[in-house]
Structure formats: structure tokens, C-alpha cells
Design a protein around this nucleic acid. Structure first.
Lengths: 345, 345
DNA sequence: GTCGCACATGTTAGCGCTAACAAAGGTGGT
DNA sequence: ACCACCTTTGTTAGCGCTAACATGTGCGAC
């Protein structure tokens, strides 16, 4: 319907020589100004900058990428961005990347296998990205990652194990230990664990941290259930738990692998007439924004996801700059609210 | 035969003429095969495809973008991806885009003003994106959008008003009406509304829908409070509300602008000894995954965010293909759970 | 005054690809 | 047999930019 020639929008996109013509210099001088090259006379630089501003010129990224081999773009491979943690991490990543002058290209894996890690890396390489950041805790995906050897830096964020390339990770074991120690200090004999799914490396690390903390304190081993991160699996576990408690089993403390499962768990317990924290204390993991408004407000382990993203970019930049960039760790923190209390004597 | 096939990372990236040499054709023939050009002899095509497979060749996206002016990339400008809706929408968008052979480049706005819409669009244009999708309900951002006239299709997703270019939107008024009518049918005299912040176009549309539905039913106008989408603002509103109820005000039904505020509201009510739905019925908006596990399980209006993303891509593709692509609407749906009940007589 | 050298600017080539045109080979109609 | 015409393939140019080299200019050292 509308023809796109409304004064401001030029029919032919502006190129460097348009700016050059206007400033009365060669296109190469414009290039030097654009790239902050030192050997340009101040007056010339000013004229060029003015011409750029007047024309509203932006250099063509594709041409730049072609000649330099770098697109000033970082590729992010992620999963489950509809969950709080991955979404926060992505925000931290994007903002840090942008602050450093990089754009973010995103590929979202799905559990249905629509896109494999190798394909995603491949695509990014063809796009001339300067680095790839992988954010997933999927065991399978991480194993696949080992096979990939891209010609650009690859950094993993939040992965549990030590993998190919650089890694930023939250101290999952430390976080689990925080939860367990808190519960033990409140006088609970042992702590049971409702873990995330087995394909998740994070879930495994938390299980490991839980076991270790229990052992270190000399407490008897607790029981382990597996959920799928979602509230419904917490609810199922809670229903089962409640029946066993009413049957007389001495279960008084549960550490849930994330806040959403803790929510489902507490709701099920409540439905079955079990009091939290009166009868059972519950600790979550993540500290989602809703956690303070659960019933009762949830004691949980906070992970600083945005910081994770920022560190990831730092690592990327170090690697792009040729530095080695080893592993980096973000420490979690315990937030005590009202879902935990002293053990019933 | 020098068996230096794939295996190790090649020192020099593969280019089209490497493939051409291996297949014994010219680079242009390779280009034709890669782009599915019709006039290539079947045998030749096969040989070339085999060479591509053996070498693991991927065309350089920057060179392609430079010569064609298209990078097969869609730029997404979004905000609040840490909230459920925007994150889901992004997932729908990314998957539909990838299915159509496009990549997604992401810019995340922040309320602090780190990046303006105009800058983001500008950046994307310099990146030769084929289209820009804007996903925000920020009034300010949408106004700024009116000033922008990019040389590529721009489609807005979820915006309330009719703006420049194409639009996909959820029927906000219809959703609000769903909530109000449900409450009215249960016998409540009127419905009060805890709305989202005033800068949000969505919040405004829901307010409008709420008012209209009330008026249409001949119900007296309800009271309006403004929150900020987060649970804490719902909690504050709920605390205030509870006191007024205990003072005798006849408040029995509240429609919250989103589920998180509904959560905060219900918790505050509960803390103050007001029963939901016994004393007050509450309806949310969004249907986050936690909603069935709130206390009580929340009656809410579901928005299909992933579908929104998919439709957005459809619209984009239509626009890229030169079609007009008008507005498109996704209809919300009411999910009745346990936070609503008949009015107390 | 003349040389040397640093700085400022211009000129040229080429990144890897696609588009346009050119050339070669095959087919059928007369 | 010839030519018209289609299909298949190759050759060339150029997208917009940066890197490398070439040229021009000014100024201090001798």
C-alpha cells in the first residue's frame, strides 16, 4: 500500500562513499574514523563524524564481517528459557555482551530434539560469530558438546562437569550443602531430597552436594526422589510423602531441587494436613520472585543468574582476546524464610 | 589420495571453490546447488552434494548477506524476558523462525534505558536483518516506534494499539471480559481490578476490557488499583484490601492483571484472615505453570504466548514475501480453578 | 638547503558469495 | 543438412568494507 519513500528513508541504503563524498575525503578515511584509527587529523575526523551524523550512516555489518571474519556477535545456545534461571542468565548475557559491543544471536534447544547442539554450533560458525556460549545442564547435550571443535571460543555456562573449553558455573554442591547444613542445624536427624531429572547435570551435582553434606555431618543418608523441575512432580512427591508421614515414618526435612518443585510439595503436604514447617521443613533452590509469597514463604538457595551471564561474557571476551580463561565460579547463598523450623522433638 | 578429509579443525575455513575443486566443477555450480537452482544436471548436483558432505562445507553467511542484502535473520526486540509470557513468546518465535530457515538475533530492552528501540532497530538494520519483531507493551517504547521507519518489515507482537506496520495481539479486552463475566455470573455485584502499571499498553487494554464488561452487564463500576506486575505489589494491595473488607466494605471479587499479582494478593488476604474464595474471589491473567499450585489454585485467563510467537513469524514471512499482512489476533481462554466461588449472599 | 621521517590521506586488492552474461553442447523442426 | 532454442556450465563483475601499500605533506636535524 505505502511506498517507502518518505523523505527520511533513502531508497538506496547509505554506504561509506556517500559519507566520504559529503565530507570531501576518501572512503578509507571514513573507515578509519569509524574504526577509531589514530592517524586521522582532528579536523578531518570531525568533518567525517558530522557527515555520518547528518546522513545517519551505519556501516554494513555483513561487509565488515566478510572482510574481518568477525561479526561482533556472540551465539547463545540455551534451553528452557521459560524458566526463571535460564531467562535471567540470558538477560545478564545480553546486557554484558551489548555493553562490550557485541550482539547476541540465540538458538533455543528443545527436548524434542528439533535442533542439536552440533547443528547450532555449526550454524553459528557459518554466521561468523566470534564465540559461542552454551547454557544447558542437559547431560546429553554436554556430551555432544565434547565432539564439537569449533574454530571460535566456546564457553559453557552453568554446566556441572568440567568440559571442553571454559566454564562458568554456580557452586551446586556448595548450594546443596548450604540447604542441608541449615536443616541439620535446626535439629533434623537427616534430610531427604527431591531432585531434578537425571538428565540434568545440575540435578546430579545437587544430589552429590546433598549426600556429601549429610556424610560430613555424620547424619544418616536420606531418601532420594526424582522430579522433573515442574510443580506437578513436586505435588506428586508430596502426596506420597504425606501418606508415609501419617503412617509414622520420621520424615521431617526435605530439600527440593528447585523452587517450583518445593511449591508443589508444600501444597500437597498442606492438602494432606501436614504442616510446613511444623511437621516438615522444606528448602528450595533458585529463589524465584514468587518464593517469598509461597505458603509459607520459602527458605531457598539463591543463585545469581544474571551474574552468571555477566561472567560468561567476561570469559568469552578473555578467550577472544587470546587469554586462557579457566573456570569461574559463582557462589550461591541461603535465604532463610518461613518454610523451615526446628525439628519436632 | 591425500586423506586429509575432515576430522581435525581445518586451518583455513572451507570456501566454495574448495568444494568446486573436489567436485570438479566451477564455484558457481556449487552455488547453484547450494541455492537449489533448477538448471543443474542431476549427476552434477549429486557430485557437488557429496563433496559438500565430505568436506563439511557451510556457506559463509556474511558473504551471502553482503551480496543478497539479506542475512536470513530476524531481529527480536523484547523486554522482561524473565517473565513467563515474554519468554514463552520468544520460544515460539525462535522455533517458528528456525523452522522457516531464519536465525534470531535478540536485543533486550531494559527499563533503565540502556538501549532505546530506535537504537535497537538501527543496529538490526545495519546487521541486514530481514525483519524486526518488537515485543513490548511499554507505551513509551511503542510511541518511539512510530518515529522509526526501517527499510525492512517491522511487526509488533502483543502491542495493544494499532501502530505502524503489522501487529499480532492477544485479545486483551476479550480476556478481561472473560474474567469479569465469570465473576458476575457467580453472583458478584461488581468486580474490582488490580491492574498492571500505567506504562503498559496491555494493562490499559485490560482495564478497558474490565470497564466495558462491567458496563455491558449493567454492573456498578468497580475500583481500580495499580500494581507493577510483581507479587509484592499484589501483596500490598491485598493488605489494604483486607483492612477495608474487615471495616465492612462489600468487596467480594477482584480481577488481577496477572497471576503474580494475584498470588501476592491472595497471600495478603490469607494473612489477614480473609478467605479465598469464601470471602473474596480472585481471577488472574496469564496462567503461569505455578498457578494450579497457588493456595487456592488460581482461576485465570490463559494467553497462548507460544502461539503468539508463531503468528508473529507468520506475519513476518508474509511481509517479507511482499504480502500485506494485516493484524492478527490470538484469543485468550478462561481456566476456572478454585480461587473463585459464588458471592456470599 | 636538503634529507629523513612521521603523519595524513588516497589507491588498490580482495574477503566469499551471487547475478548477469557468455559459451558450449544437445534437441527437434524444416 | 541447417538453424533456432533450450539446458548446462563457466566466466566475470561487484556487493561494502578493511588491509596493505603508495603518495603527499610538514617539520626538525644536520
Amino acid at each position: 500500500m505505502s511506498t517507502d519513500t518518505t523523505g527520511a528513508a533513502p531508497a538506496r541504503p547509505l554506504v561509506m562513499s556517500d559519507v566520504a563524498a559529503r565530507a570531501g575525503v576518501s572512503h578509507q578515511t571514513v573507515s578509519r574514523v569509524v574504526n577509531g584509527h589514530p592517524n586521522v587529523a582532528p579536523r578531518t575526523r570531525e568533518r567525517v563524524q558530522q557527515a555520518i551524523a547528518e546522513l545517519g550512516y551505519r556501516p554494513n555489518a555483513a561487509a565488515r564481517a566478510l572482510v574481518t571474519g568477525s561479526s561482533r556477535t556472540i551465539g547463545l545456545i540455551t534451553i528452557d528459557v521459560d524458566q526463571y534461571g535460564p531467562a535471567q542468565t540470558m538477560i545478564g548475557l545480553e546486557q554484558a555482551a551489548r555493553a562490550a559491543g557485541y550482539s547476541l544471536s540465540v538458538a533455543i534447544l528443545d527436548r524434542a530434539g528439533g535442533l542439536t547442539i552440533a547443528e547450532a554450533v555449526d550454524r553459528f560458525v557459518a554466521q561468523s560469530v566470534d564465540a559461542v556460549v552454551v547454557h544447558t545442564a542437559e547431560l546429553q547435550a554436554l556430551e555432544a558438546l565434547e565432539q564439537v571443535d569449533p574454530p571460535v571460543p566456546l564457553v559453557a555456562v552453568q554446566m556441572g562437569g568440567e568440559g571442553h573449553g571454559s566454564t562458568v558455573t554456580v557452586g551446586q554442591e556448595a548450594g546443596a550443602a548450604l540447604a542441608v547444613d541449615h536443616l541439620l542445624e535446626l535439629g533434623h536427624t537427616t534430610v531427604h531430597h527431591l531432585a531434578g531429572p537425571s538428565y540434568s547435570v545440575e540435578a546430579r551435582r545437587r544430589i552429590q552436594g546433598w549426600r556429601t553434606a549429610l556424610a560430613r555431618a555424620g547424619a544418616p543418608a536420606g531418601e532420594l526422589w526424582l522430579g522433573d523441575w515442574w510443580p506437578s512432580s513436586g505435588h506428586a512427591a508430596g502426596t506420597d510423602l504425606a501418606q508415609r508421614i501419617r503412617a509414622g515414618e520420621p520424615i521431617t526435612a526435605v530439600f527440593a531441587g528447585n523452587d517450583q518443585m518445593a511449591l508443589g510439595l508444600m501444597v500437597a503436604l498442606h492438602e494432606q494436613g501436614i504442616s510446613v514447617p511444623g511437621d516438615v521443613s522444606v528448602v528450595g533452590f533458585d529463589d524465584v520472585p514468587e518464593a517469598p509469597y509461597f505458603s509459607p514463604p520459602l527458605t531457598t538457595v539463591r543463585q545469581d543468574f544474571a551474574e552468571l551471564g555477566r561472567r560468561g561474557v567476561e570469559l568469552v571476551l578473555a578467550r577472544i582476546g587470546g587469554e586462557d580463561g579457566g573456570s569461574d565460579l559463582v557462589e550461591p547463598r541461603l535465604l532463610v524464610r518461613s518454610s523451615t523450623g526446628p525439628a519436632r522433638s
